[in-house]
């Protein structure tokens, strides 16, 4: 690990000032400290934001949910309002990492997670994200866990967050505060696909701080849930995951919110699946028909072709779990 200076800030303006001066924000630190030890991350100055008043979790007046960026994963997962309004968020969080890590890691940090690609984490390997222009060792390397959607010639790493899959499905917004003031970014625009600039991972301006993630209101009753398929039963990143939320009224699906994890370079909204569901009556046949288009546009690599079929099956199964058959 390289040396760094350390400053703990007690209010948001001081944080933004320190961040604008080139400081790197640290909240839970579970990703950052790990990557600093691997020398993948080499910040010269850490700005500790853990004391900022950004931890509230509350229903919004329209029936949505606002989660402070510094709320810990464990707190959000266990929060009665979250469990009642959006089980998909609680489930995604509780299927992430370990109890110890969930006690440390924040929601803001969770969506800021960097790739788990082994070549990204190995400073001796070629990686365009870590070292732009150096190449991508994963493209022709061991890429069984890599992305099949949203990839580019420059990068094929998946986004590792489970919560981000739920946020993408539910069309969350990310609240930001920077030197230029506040702004709000839709989740679909917050995480960036690699394209030709894989080193740019989020829609963030210099010094900007995530203050909250907000879930808009959705029609009620809303049934939702998260399914995670992985190589071991617990404490592992997703091979495939699916976040599903459905509002059924009069026997017809009025609202369908679906996204997948483990397949995209960003959490992957499944709009084609949603379109096949809306206006239809729940049935076994419908879940199969809708899931059939889950992998549209997929471009498998040498070792991850299995993800195409597994994605369809995972989505189908979770549609059945959340939607039932009637």
């Amino acid at each position: 690990m390289y040396p760094f200076s350390y400053t703990k800030v007690s209010d948001v303006p001081a944080a933004v000032k320190a961040g604008s001066d080139g400081g790197r924000y640290i909240a839970g630190g579970t990703t950052l400290v790990d990557l600093m030890r691997e020398t993948v991350e080499r910040p010269g100055a850490l700005v500790d934001i853990s004391a900022l008043p950004l931890r509230d979790i509350a229903a919004t007046k329209g029936g949505g949910l606002r989660i402070g960026a510094l709320a810990r994963m464990a707190e959000v997962a266990a929060h009665p309002t979250v469990r009642a309004l959006y089980p998909v968020i609680s489930q995604a969080l509780e299927l992430s990492a370990s109890p110890q890590l969930r006690n440390m890691a924040s929601i803001g940090g969770n969506i800021m997670q960097r790739p788990r690609c082994t070549y990204f984490r190995d400073v001796t390997a070629a990686c365009n994200r870590r070292e732009p222009g150096s190449g991508c060792a994963a493209r022709e390397g061991f890429n069984r866990t890599h992305a099949i959607l949203g990839t580019s010639d420059h990068c094929v790493a998946t986004h590792p967050s489970d919560a981000a899959v739920a946020f993408a499905a539910l069309e969350a917004t990310v609240h930001l505060l920077g030197p230029g003031g506040e702004r709000t970014v839709g989740f679909a625009d917050f995480l960036l696909r690699p394209g030709a600039t894989p080193q740019r991972e989020q829609n963030l301006r210099p010094g900007e701080l995530i203050t909250a993630v907000e879930i808009p209101s959705h029609p009620r009753p809303l049934r939702s849930g998260y399914l995670k398929v992985r190589d071991r039963q617990s404490y592992e990143f997703a091979l495939i995951s699916a976040a599903v939320a459905l509002h059924v009224r009069g026997g017809v699906i009025q609202t369908a919110k679906v996204a997948a994890g483990g397949v995209g370079t960003v959490s992957w909204k499944l709009s084609a699946v949603e379109r096949r569901l809306i206006g239809q009556r729940p049935s076994e046949a419908l879940w199969t028909q809708a899931a059939e288009v889950a992998a549209e546009g997929a471009q498998p690599l040498t070792h991850n072709g299995f993800k195409v079929e597994l994605l369809k099956r995972t989505v189908e199964r979770q549609l059945r779990v959340v939607g039932g058959t009637r």
């Binding site: 630190g29 400290v33 110890q100 890590l101």
Partner: peptide, 18 residues
Amino acid sequence: TVLVDGRRVNGCLTLAVR
């Protein structure tokens, strides 16, 4: 694993300075 303020955490990922 140790407890910090009553919660279990990974000591290896916790910077002492914090």
